[in-house]
Amino acid sequence: MIEVKNLTKQYGKFFAVKNISFTVNEGEVFALLGPNGSGKTTTIKSIVGLNIPTSGKILINGVDISSDSTEAKKYLSYLPQRVVFPENLTAREIIRFYGKMRNISKDVADRALEEATFNGFSDKHISKFSGGMIQKLGLAVVAMANTPILILDEPSVSLDPHGVIRLREFIKEKKSEGKTILFSSHMLSEVEQLADRVAILVNGKLIMLESIENIKKSFETNKTFEELYLSLVEEI
């Protein structure tokens, strides 16, 4: 579903991402793992069409994002690292607005809002929302789009434990619906529990791309996943 070929992103002389290639298959949950500044966000932003890559090619469902981004973006919905909504809009206004962006009718948008259960806050301004409710709304926007691909950038960062649980449920649910999910994280536990395959990024380079099982299997003897990861990160 997502093909990343030789992706490079350069800021001046600094390489945020250098020559990365990977493929995310249909229906799998794919995790980008790495410490802060390893290039996870840059990679995701390039996939979503927010960043313009220095070189390389990204295909979403076979469509090149750089040549036909509008078409390519129809197949994915994206949740940024920190979701922010304009403070003086209501939840309903926001969800209907994003509905309009994808030609989704008001009724469908309203249903998505009901499913998210805001308990009477649906028509309140965002300024009155708690962090958890904003996350909920973000997830509702992403879910409403009903695209085959979901892309989440560090979704659990700055969430309280309830939020983390809600997120985990969300990903599991979407996986069961057959969606392709790509998310980034620096939290091993999250990756371990949710992902089918993992790509480990360090300093802008892809150093490992394996299924969770394979990784676990090859290092079963002496190391936990955590130890493995730390050793990999230190090596570089």
Partner: peptide, 9 residues
């Protein structure tokens, strides 16, 4: 005024 007029609640 609401950004999108509510017809269905």
């Amino acid at each position: 005024k609401n950004l999108f007029p509510t017809s269905s609640g």
